[in-house]
Design a protein around this nucleic acid. Structure first.
Length: 238
DNA sequence: GCGACAG
DNA sequence: ATCTTGTCGC
């Protein structure tokens, strides 16, 4: 798919933070997404091993969730892991993977945060901006925010607030949802990335669940990105 | 100063 | 994320 160059990835941590503050203002987080119009959903993930990053974007048909396209991209890991700056570690290789994608997914689900981020722009939001497509963040653990925790039943959800409630601020801004994708199993942290609102983000992730904790698109991407001995790229080709 | 901290 | 054996449960 075509990808406009929004900015340079090779920046210092302080420049990265300045970029995030600037880009956060461009996010559209109040737009409902009509799931009945969705034909393809992509799962996105990156694995890292010994300085090599492998990105995977797997497109599934929707709502039947069958894999229709898988693209991979390898590149040296350019940035250390710094909480809040994950996009600058995964962005370059993700951009390359998306450039190889032929199918135009109607929505993207990332293994990471959307707007539930210290500056409101996690990897799902940031890449959603680069790609100009509806995106959702589905993280396995919390980066920021507070929640009372969802009930134990499958499908239960609780609001993820920017900060814990206080007497001075009874209802802090809602930045996402903590969703119980399987009964009595650790919940996932869902937050809209770009061009989608929270309700639609939760609805999309919910519609992509099968019998596992993570939505199918993310599971497929996670497996595709896995850096195992058998999937190491050959160093010499002819 | 101390604790928290996506992948 | 990755390093790692066995083990509990459907």
């Amino acid at each position: 798919m075509h990808i406009p160059h929004l900015h340079d990835w090779a920046v210092t941590p302080r420049e990265a933070i300045a970029l995030q503050k600037q880009l956060a203002g461009q996010l559209v987080l109040d737009r409902p997404l009509d799931l009945s119009a969705i034909r393809h959903v992509a799962g996105v993930d990156v694995s890292v091993r010994e300085g090599l990053s492998r990105a995977a974007v797997v497109v599934l048909s929707f709502p039947d969730l069958q894999v229709v396209e898988t693209v991979l991209a390898d590149a040296p890991t350019p940035f250390p892991y710094v909480p809040g700056l994950l996009t600058f570690r995964e962005g370059p290789v993700l951009e390359e993977a998306f450039a190889r994608l032929k199918t135009e997914p109607d929505a993207l689900i990332f293994d990471g945060a959307g707007c539930a981020h210290p500056r409101g722009i996690g990897v799902a939001s940031h890449m959603g901006l680069w790609l100009g497509r509806p995106s959702v963040g589905c993280a396995k653990t919390r980066l920021t925010g507070w929640s009372a925790g969802p009930g134990p039943l499958q499908g239960e959800a609780a609001a993820l607030l920017a900060r814990p409630p206080t007497s001075a601020e009874p209802s802090p801004p809602c930045i996402g949802a903590v969703l119980r994708t399987r009964a009595n199993v650790a919940p996932v942290y869902v937050s809209p990335g770009h061009l989608i609102d929270q309700a639609s983000a939760v609805a999309l992730v919910s519609a992509c669940l099968s019998r596992f904790r993570l939505p199918e698109p993310v599971r497929a991407a996670h497996r595709a990105a896995a850096l195992t001995a058998a999937s190491q790229p050959k160093l010499s080709g002819v």
